[in-house]
């Protein structure tokens, strides 16, 4: 376990250096948060239907999306992508460690470090001025943290899959074009998942992407009750195991037929 913790720590420290990026990220998230707040307020005021989420709940949902935005992934790990393209991946293969968990640990650090820097100020700003409600109960705040942890695990497994795709294709754009819209749509980033049409919800709730944002957010607001959360966590765990096993199998195969680039 220790090597992986060290790798995590090192990557985390590297990313904490980027303070300017954190402030820029904070500004962007705040800006988009305000715009989305305005859009959803307009929707709610012009609609006579009773919505599955009240407007204050939606607004809290939106701010939590903004706060956790930095957790979501947009590509394979840039460092890993560089290494695969220029052949330094060779160095990773002569280490007495498990490459999958090594990448996994780095992916977690890559998601957590910027998120830590950005989300705390955003929580404070949105909580004080823009209608972000506090967690429903003390229990739901703990469940929220658990939800974030399972979300990060799923993200790391997905990032690893993208890394592995790079080993097969060198250009993971195709795989990324496929996975990113799925994440965007089915994590709750664009539209809160409870607002999806009823007939489509089984699909949305079956997919793993919901655990990236929707699960922790609705644990926070109490929309998923503590008793329900057991099943949600189980669902996340099963996905996590499946994605990991799949990734490990693909990686094993990729490494055995590897061609190191560039002499």
């Amino acid at each position: 376990m220790k090597p992986y913790m060290t790798v995590f720590g090192a990557q985390f420290r590297v990313l904490l250096q980027y303070r300017a990026r954190a402030w820029a990220g904070f500004g962007t998230q705040l800006f988009w948060g305000l715009i989305r707040m305005a859009i959803f307020t307009a929707f709610y005021e012009s609609s006579t239907h009773v919505q599955p989420l009240s407007l204050p709940d939606v607004i809290t949902y939106l701010w939590l999306v903004q706060a956790l935005f930095a957790l979501t992934y947009w590509s394979a790990s840039p460092e890993v992508a560089d290494k695969i393209r220029n052949g330094s991946i060779a160095y990773e293969l002569i280490r007495p460690i498990d490459l999958y968990w090594y990448w996994f640990a780095r992916a977690i650090a890559c998601r957590l470090a910027p998120a830590t820097l950005r989300s705390i100020p955003l929580f404070i700003a949105a909580g004080l001025f823009f209608g972000l409600k506090p967690p429903a109960t003390f229990a739901s705040s703990l469940l929220f943290l658990g939800g974030v942890a399972s979300g990060v695990a799923i993200i790391a497994a997905l990032v690893c899959l993208l890394n592995i795709a790079l080993l097969y294709t060198l250009a993971s754009e195709g795989v990324m074009r496929l996975s990113i819209p799925l994440t965007l749509l089915f994590s709750g980033m664009m539209i809160p998942l409870p607002l999806f049409p009823l007939w489509f919800q089984p699909v949305v709730y079956f997919l793993p992407f919901r655990h990236i944002l929707d699960t922790p957010i609705r644990l926070y607001t109490g929309n998923i009750s503590p008793t329900e959360s057991v099943w949600v966590f189980l669902h996340a765990l099963i996905w996590c195991v499946c994605l990991t096993l799949w990734g490990r199998r693909l990686l094993k195969r990729a490494v055995s037929q590897l061609v190191a680039q560039g002499g």
Partner: peptide, 26 residues
């Protein structure tokens, strides 16, 4: 193994931290 055309050190970290990292990896 040393591949002369590439580095195994972490680009953004001080050299000594790469050493510490390798200590734990090995």
């Amino acid at each position: 193994v040393v591949f002369g055309q590439r580095t195994q050190l972490w680009w953004d970290l001080p050299v000594i931290e790469s050493f510490d990292l390798l200590k734990d990896i090995y």
